[in-house]
Write a protein that binds this DNA or RNA. Structure first.
Lengths: 220, 220
DNA sequence: ACACTCCAAATTGGATCCAATAATTTAAAG
DNA sequence: CTTTAAATTATTGGATCCAATTTGGAGTGT
């Protein structure tokens, strides 16, 4: 799967990135077992980097480590989705508040171009593009730890996107909300940008929750 | 150092707890090297559990992993302190908002008793007791991931406490602010509890920052 | 048919071993 | 005497090995 062993010392990091991607996209479905031997084979390495990778992913909340029984992809549940959206609201309202005073027009233009890409992108790229859009607006705040936290929350939330990706009303609403947020940024209206960020996240969370409940019903 | 090898499977966890404690209290000073062989010896184990522990602590932000060069205790700096306080403010305002509607008098009494302990506790226990006080008030919110996040932020912030522990005005102010917060909780005044939580964290942050700057000056 | 026990296979956790990289010391030259 | 180059040492990253725990199944008794 990974032909060229990169540099010594990065092995675990590459494995982390690869597994994270697979979990977010659903290639590795929630609850599925992560066998060290198997992962080692697909990554052409021994079990050791895998074990370190699993520990990192556990800290990110994407896998659960069960002592003496191995790791599973973190199950999805409505509670987690709700809590993640609440935390996103708090963290991103803070981020946009700190960022807007330092935003340049060029930086907002950059975010706007990402939004353009979103509108024609294939569904499987929506999650990462959406994260990129928001983080572009937060970057001028100069808060690396806050950014990492937000990024991690996006990763968790993106797992739930899979269930509503095809629903155009979700994308349309997101698009118009992004547009309004960009406008507020161009006007350097901190209060409005915070309000829009909050409602954007809350509304997206509600929509996701609705579709997730529907999805879970059909499964049971 | 750890006489009894616990159960198979939580070796790394015990190592994590032990090193975390040592970093927070300053036993392991900021920037100091963490040699795997050395840590393995003091924990009567091989290097493997150490390596996993270091990865976990890296995710918590308490150590820095430098590829091919090992781990160091995360340096302290004013930027991190500020960012951590900002994140605490956002996360804990959310936590108290969600918690107050579910708070029982018994739970508030419990927090009040912890505050009593704080007032007579030795300096080295102030950090963990303070965390316990706040988390007791947040527990009824039923948000385990938010709690873990807040707990992690406290751990980081507590490293900076060491520099001001002896300053009584800091403790006095904290005590009166805790008291006001308890009052607001007894009245179930969500808005006031949020406001008090925010200012409590912000003020504590400012005080810590002031003393940290002084401390750094004397070092240079 | 069901439950229980015991045994074998699978799998993880920890120890050890080896190779690659970084740090340090020594040696040499200007 | 200082500075640079080479070799030696220390330390990490990854592979392999072994022991402990769990899982699944076969067999037995009720």
């Amino acid at each position: 799967m990974i032909p060229k062993p990169p540099q010594r010392g990065d092995r675990a990091q590459h494995v982390v990135d690869h597994i994270r991607e697979a979990i977010i996209t659903g290639t590795l479905p929630p609850g599925s077992a992560l066998r060290q031997e198997e992962l080692a084979a697909t990554h052409a390495s021994s079990r050791m980097p895998i074990r370190e990778a699993l520990r990192t992913l556990s800290a990110e909340g994407l896998v659960q480590l069960i002592p003496n029984r191995g790791a599973i992809v973190a199950p999805i549940d409505v509670e987690e989705l709700r809590e993640t959206c609440e935390m996103r609201e708090a963290a991103e309202a803070l981020a946009i508040r700190l960022s807007v005073p330092h935003l340049s027009n060029a930086q907002i233009d950059l975010a706007a171009s990402i939004q353009k890409q979103i509108e024609t992108a294939p569904p499987e790229e929506l999650g990462s593009l959406n994260k990129e859009f928001h983080c572009t607006l937060y970057a001028p705040a100069g808060r690396p730890r806050l950014m990492a936290h937000i990024s991690s929350l996006h990763d968790i939330a993106d797992r739930y996107l899979r269930f509503t990706l095809l629903h155009l009303d979700y994308i349309d609403r997101s698009t118009s909300e992004h547009q309004a947020l960009l406008d507020a940024c161009y006007r350097r209206d901190v209060e409005e940008a915070m309000r829009l960020t909050s409602t954007h996240i809350v509304e997206a969370g509600k929509t996701l929750e609705t579709y997730l409940r529907k999805h879970l019903e059909t499964r049971l």
